[in-house]
Design a protein around this nucleic acid. Structure first.
Lengths: 257, 257
DNA sequence: TAGTGGTCTAGACCACCCC
DNA sequence: GGGTGGTCTAGACCACTAC
């Protein structure tokens, strides 16, 4: 199978005569490969880059750009030294307090959380504001790597005001932090403000998540409050954009027209 | 100012002797440029690519990769034929039913919505399932381009079952669709399920949004239901990932321990 | 050693905008 | 014409994995 792609030049007249947007070669190639991948079962391996480039009549760089886009979309998985494989599709996680474990179980996946780091530091002014403490106060920083069936999925960095939770560092493990807050300190979470945006993987994150540097991430920032309205923690989580999507239920305001 | 970057080769011993992740040149360069951009007011222009590449002792390709990452993060804005400029930061939109207009006004922005297309087609099996109709039934497809202060921000494609809303195509304009549904058909939205994931800009989307092909997007899919639990519309929206973030309020379940 | 993917380079050429 | 950013190429070299 060969057949080379049309050049990047303008062509094809859209409806009405409105000029259609230019389609770069890498995008046309991406769509062609997407069609190919669609017919493969997840995990099935593809030919090497050099072979694919020749087969489709493009340079390796152009081929790599198309593959990078498919990888970002979760349609391919690539491992250095091993090969390129058909992707597994995205997992859906509900946007709510304390949901990772249940959602993964709901998908028939085995979730684990490894504590990467638990350290104490001083709050900078911004963090102090968020946690309702004074700049310089002690803050406990917990860093976890979440996996599903052993596959790295997300990095979660939580920060809590240590003044409210003395000795907390000795009580955290791989289990539920919220359970510890309730059982040892009598603090229950009430609500949180969570923002979602895109981000790119820094080298350290890429290493932990097993992605390339610059890979697409979903960045979730969660600001949690207890039943008295006091801030309890500030969590920054990055999820693999190629493996995750989030779902929320929206309710119409009562005073709707 | 010059000083070239360290090569991509392994080096530097991290703390403890744990091997630190390799930092590619483009990432180191990105961080260096990010520092530079941080000191600039939004809209301030940067030197051209060729100049920057020489200044930092890298090839134009590597420089471009660093600039692409900064652009994806919203820290730079680039326009072909014009130049590269410091970015404006991200806007925050609340995740709720019917919020774009109010949220933009809340930011002091002037929101507009242009109707790109209103057409009638037959539902494919998947869409029919979502809209609670039979495959092949008429579906109204509405496509809007949303802007803030004239800047393209999102493309919204809504699909509604025409059987429930006869003549709807003649009553839609640039105003609120939900208002029309209520005033002419007595249908009020009750709730929706909204999923959020990442996506890349196809050529047509890139042209409308003024981004490059392959630019980072946030893809929101909204499935709306009326007060009787019947599906009312299916909306697929793509927002510029470099300009947007979303925020939701999460509430703890009552039975939380 | 030989395969895989990942990085970086130098240079050609194109599309777009403004003068 | 001469500036900007965008695409594509050919090739060198690196890092990782398997045998």
């Amino acid at each position: 199978m060969a057949a080379s792609l049309p050049g990047g030049g303008a062509e094809e007249a859209g409806e009405n005569g409105r000029k259609s947007p230019r389609t770069p070669k890498h995008w046309a190639l991406k769509e062609r490969l997407a069609e190919l991948v669609r017919g493969l079962p997840p995990g099935r391996s593809l030919p090497g880059e050099r072979v694919l480039a020749v087969e489709h009549g493009v340079s390796r760089s152009t081929l790599r750009r198309a593959l990078a886009e498919l990888t970002a979309e979760g349609r391919l998985t690539r491992v250095q030294g091993i090969g390129t494989f058909a992707g597994e599709g995205k997992l859906t996680q509900r946007l709510r307090l304390s949901s990772y474990t249940e959602d993964m179980r709901g998908h028939g996946r085995h979730p684990t959380a490894a504590l990467l780091d638990a350290s104490i530091g001083a709050a900078d002014p911004e963090l102090a504001l968020r946690l309702g403490i004074r700049s310089g106060d002690d803050v406990l920083r917990l860093r976890r790597l979440r996996r599903a069936d052993g596959e790295p999925m997300a990095i979660e960095t939580a920060r809590l005001p240590l003044g409210r939770f003395p000795g907390l560092a000795h009580h955290v493990g791989d289990g539920s932090l919220y359970r510890v807050l309730w059982e040892r300190y009598g603090v229950a979470l009430d609500h949180a403000e969570e923002t979602i945006e895109t981000a790119l993987a820094a080298p350290a994150e890429a290493a932990l998540l097993g992605t390339d540097v610059g890979a697409l991430l979903l960045l979730l920032s969660r600001h949690c409050f207890d039943t008295e309205g006091r801030p309890v923690e500030w969590v920054r989580s990055v999820y693999r954009g190629d493996r995750y999507k989030f779902v929320a239920t929206l309710v119409a305001p009562r005073t709707e027209n």
